[in-house]
Design a protein around this nucleic acid. Structure first.
Lengths: 187, 187
DNA sequence: AAAGGCGGTTGATCTGGATCAAGAACGGAT
DNA sequence: ATCCGTTCTTGATCCAGATCAACCGCCTTT
């Protein structure tokens, strides 16, 4: 549970009694490679911190998977959109490698928000991060060509190329696997 | 200032003394049509609630404006990305019509977060809304064709077509003004 | 070790929407 | 009113990247 504490304390300090209250809400969960963590149409009950492994966030469209993002190491995971609204989600989350997550149930988090004020702030701060990340990505999707998006990824997240199948990265970069492969050969 | 109070209280209740503390932080601001509210490269100092008028959020790329969104009536305005990070922004915000905003300075908001716990929650809740909105838009941008995106806008926000120039809507829908015009004639 | 099946490569062809071009219609300023 | 700069429209052409297709690994499964 140290992972949870240190993760939260990267954003807000917790007094000892607050941490005692918070810690009991988190559960360790394991997903073998290939398993689904969340599915389209289901309400996402958990918000996750990633202990280990890589996950992809995607949806199906016209028979192909479209990948919206990856999560790994100390980042967040799950279908936030469904989690936040507690409505059936539009996204799948799948373990690309064997995965260990630490999750908190929505009802527990809501209770924490009421009982531990620091958690409200924690929630605000991670949402700020998520929003800034999305905004950056949106601008890049619009302003860059396929080749520029490829180059940027290689330079920013070279480890991803090792961790996940090329077809997923291709889809994440909004191009076909063929285009991705050609860029690889060329650049 | 009733606008500010009722806007905040759509998310969290405020005790009378909290509201007294909050109210003094907000300033009324007027922008004539065409004026810039925020500019690329500047740090956004304000977070705004829109009292009236329409604004567009955009950036320049290869000599053309790319519109990322509009704000009006009781929605939010400003370059959140820059505001949240207090770093030079990548976006312009411009008044499309005469505009009245109510804004709060970043330093004041940070102080409120510390002094009025309800404000932390308010911040969290509007960020949740913004994030869900972005996610929805992202999926639609990917999964829909130009024509489908046009149809969806017409059905969801017909008023926009009256309020803002077609070229801005076209860019917001990720197409050229020519394509937009042709869809208009056809659909 | 044979047989699928998926992932990746490479080539040929196609296409949605962009770009280029040239008027027409609509303000706003004087 | 009339002039000038936008915005919008309509037509012709173009192109980045998609699609279609064939093949080659490399794992699994049996």
């Amino acid at each position: 549970m140290d992972l949870v504490r240190s993760t939260i304390e990267r954003y807000v300090p917790l007094k000892e009694h607050e941490w005692e209250r918070v810690r009991v809400c988190w559960k360790e969960l394991l997903f073998p490679k290939g398993e689904f963590i969340s599915r389209v149409g289901d309400v996402e009950h958990f918000f996750y911190i990633v202990r280990g492994g890589v996950q992809r966030l995607f949806f199906e469209h016209d028979g192909t998977s479209i990948c919206l993002g990856f999560s790994y190491d100390h980042s967040w995971s799950g279908d936030y959109e469904s989690f936040l609204q507690q409505k059936p989600g539009r996204l799948n989350v799948q373990a690309i490698t064997d995965t260990a997550l630490v999750g908190i149930d929505h009802a527990d988090l809501i209770a924490l928000y009421d009982e531990v004020p620091a958690m409200d702030r924690f929630g605000r701060l991670i949402l700020e991060e998520l929003l800034v990340g999305r905004a950056t990505r949106e601008i890049e999707q619009i302003a860059l060509t396929a080749e520029e998006r490829y180059r940027k990824l290689v330079q920013r997240s070279p480890h991803l190329l090792q961790l996940v199948p090329q077809k997923d990265i291709a889809s994440y970069l909004r191009m076909t696997p063929e285009t991705f492969s050609r860029l690889r050969a060329k650049v």
